[in-house]
């Protein structure tokens, strides 16, 4: 079920020089993309030329011009302004949900790794949760509770906490059997000390990579939900919602639909590039 990153010796002869440079390039490129979107999410709405709901153009799907750098959308609103607000929604909701999922998952994972019966209960619980297809779970929960932002964050976090749980549990179990943990136990250290001071510091790297991966999954699911009309509700929008509402512009290649599409892709590809570079390209895909 679980794929924990492993490092290994490369097979056969190859040119590590090329490989290394490629890794650095993808780290730089991916990192720059992520930082770009973080900045956009942070300051974007403040510098937006128009209110997101304001109709500024009589023409719909108009091409880019000096007044409307990304053209107008299906109602004649400014695409740039809507993009800036949508990026903030997508990035902040995804970040919050990932943070929540990681916190719950890692906490339960560490707890499970340190006790037998807690492990049995949590494992079964999270296994059950992950058996419901993610989009279906979102469909039903949001369909019944309404698409408010807390509900969105909660749903996304619920869907992706089992993955964080499984990863941190597996990692922690591998470390918990090492001799230095045994030495600490033999010294009489308390469980919280052992978990926080001996085990956790060794998990930071792999968990960071897992966090990035989960951020990608959350972003994709959020966009999928928005595409089905279950995401951020009008007049606000996230990137997925922008694609949905402007889908009619696809036929003539309107920026209103293409820009948010590429925005989602660059965000997730950028994150994937960073993770791949950091974990040496040996990461296998997890469950989406």
């Amino acid at each position: 079920m679980n794929t924990v990153p492993k490092s290994g010796v490369p097979y056969g002869a190859q040119a590590p020089k090329v490989r290394r440079r490629r890794m650095n390039v993808s780290l730089l490129l991916g990192g720059a993309t992520i930082i770009f979107w973080l900045i956009v999410a942070l300051v974007g709405p403040m510098v937006a030329p128009h209110a997101p709901g304001q109709v500024v153009d009589l023409d719909v799907f108009s091409p880019a011009s000096s007044t409307l750098p990304l053209g107008s959308d299906y109602l004649g609103r400014d695409v740039l302004s809507r993009m800036l607000i949508a990026s903030r929604f997508t990035v902040s909701i995804a970040l919050l949900a990932t943070l929540l999922a990681a916190t719950v998952g890692v906490f339960c994972g560490l707890l499970a790794a340190s006790s037998g019966w807690v492990d049995a209960i949590f494992s079964k619980l999270f296994d059950t949760l992950s058996a419901v297809p993610s989009l279906m779970f979102g469909l039903v929960v949001i369909g019944s509770l309404g698409a408010s932002i807390p509900v969105l964050v909660g749903t996304l976090a619920t869907v992706y906490s089992p993955g964080a749980f499984r990863t941190s549990r597996a990692l922690a179990r591998n470390i918990a059997v090492l001799d230095f943990v045994t030495v600490a136990r033999a010294r009489g250290e308390t469980l919280p000390y052992i978990v926080l001071r001996e085990i956790l510091p060794n998990l930071v790297g792999p968990l960071a990579a897992d966090f990035g991966l989960r951020f990608v999954f959350v972003t994709l699911l959020l966009s999928g939900l928005s595409f089905l009309g279950l995401g951020v509700q009008p007049p606000n929008a996230d990137l997925g919602a922008l694609v949905r509402e402007n889908i009619a512009g696809l036929g003539f290649g309107a920026a209103a639909v293409l820009v948010p599409t590429f925005a989602i892709a660059s965000l997730t590809i950028g994150m994937n590039m960073v993770i791949d570079a950091v974990s040496g390209g040996r990461r296998a895909g997890g469950r989406r």
Binding site: P10, Y11, G12, Q14, A15, R19, R22, V216, L220, S223, G224, F227, G240, V243, I247, L250, V257, T261, I264, A265, T268, I269, M271, N272, M273, D276, G281, G285, R288
Partner: peptide, 28 residues
Amino acid sequence: RRGSLLDRVISMATIGVVSVPEFVIATL
């Protein structure tokens, strides 16, 4: 063929596809 051009192309393509929501692929 680890480390070869083919491997890198496949790896890039899979990252690309994994990173893009399915509705984007479909609409394209």
